[in-house]
């Protein structure tokens, strides 16, 4: 088959995924065996397990894929990657799809993992290192003060256990902990984001 003939049968969404999504060029290698879906620890929580996502991409179901919360169920356990008989980097493709949908602004707004991931990135890039207390408090108060207090109280024994064993800093909200080179880190992340945005078409 000539390249032209192959191109003719490519739908636009598959092309878009191949161009813009991390490891997207590997999607067409999927042979629909389903080992990934059966190997996923959160399998039953996926509305569309990976195998289905791959077929939906080929069928051009752009909105159904990108607005799905399925990819946000990935725990990054890499079980699918090591078991895939065609050696698709499935974990990376799921991460890539979730990131792409998020950056396009069409990922499910209320998905807790999406929101947590956003907070996490802000947390690590502001000082260069994770501030665990700020991250946990931010997570509990994500939906406002009332639900934050409720969640905070529920998780209080866990937090106290960690503080008692010196594994959580009670002064974490105000401590100046982090990298000395935090300005450098912010500078490099800004530049890296600009380059990636431009290439993947997120740039305003």
């Amino acid at each position: 088959m000539t390249t032209q003939a192959v191109e003719k049968y490519h739908n636009d969404f598959l092309k878009e995924v191949e161009k813009n999504v991390e490891m997207g060029h590997m999607v067409k290698m999927c042979m629909q065996c389903g080992v990934c879906s059966g190997s996923c620890p959160l399998g039953p929580a996926w509305e569309h397990p990976p195998q289905e996502i791959f077929m939906m991409i080929r069928a051009g179901k752009r909105d159904e894929v990108l607005t799905s919360d399925s990819m946000w169920m990935c725990t990054s356990c890499y079980n699918c990657i090591v078991r895939c008989p065609r050696e698709l980097p499935i974990t990376h493709i799921m991460h890539g799809l979730a990131n792409y949908a998020h950056r396009l602004g069409i990922a499910p707004k209320q998905n807790p993992t999406r929101r947590f991931a956003q907070m996490f990135w802000k947390n690590i890039t502001s000082t260069g290192r994770v501030n665990e207390l700020k991250l946990s408090v931010g997570l509990y108060f994500m939906d406002g003060i009332a639900s934050g207090i409720k969640k905070g109280l529920e998780m209080l024994p866990v937090g106290l256990g960690l503080m008692k064993t010196k594994r959580l800093d009670p002064m974490g909200m105000v401590s100046g902990h982090g990298c000395k080179g935090r300005a450098d880190i912010q500078k490099m992340i800004k530049k890296a984001t600009e380059i990636e945005d431009k290439r993947k078409g997120y740039a305003a």
Binding site: E22, Q118, W121, I124
Partner: peptide, 26 residues
């Protein structure tokens, strides 16, 4: 000296590819 966070796995969602790899490259 002055190492930074690896961006962990969950860093993919906001950090994508280049920004995330930049963290580790530093």
């Amino acid at each position: 000296p002055d190492w930074n966070c690896c961006a962990a796995s969950i860093g993919y969602a906001q950090g994508g590819e280049l920004p995330r790899h930049t963290m580790n490259a530093r």
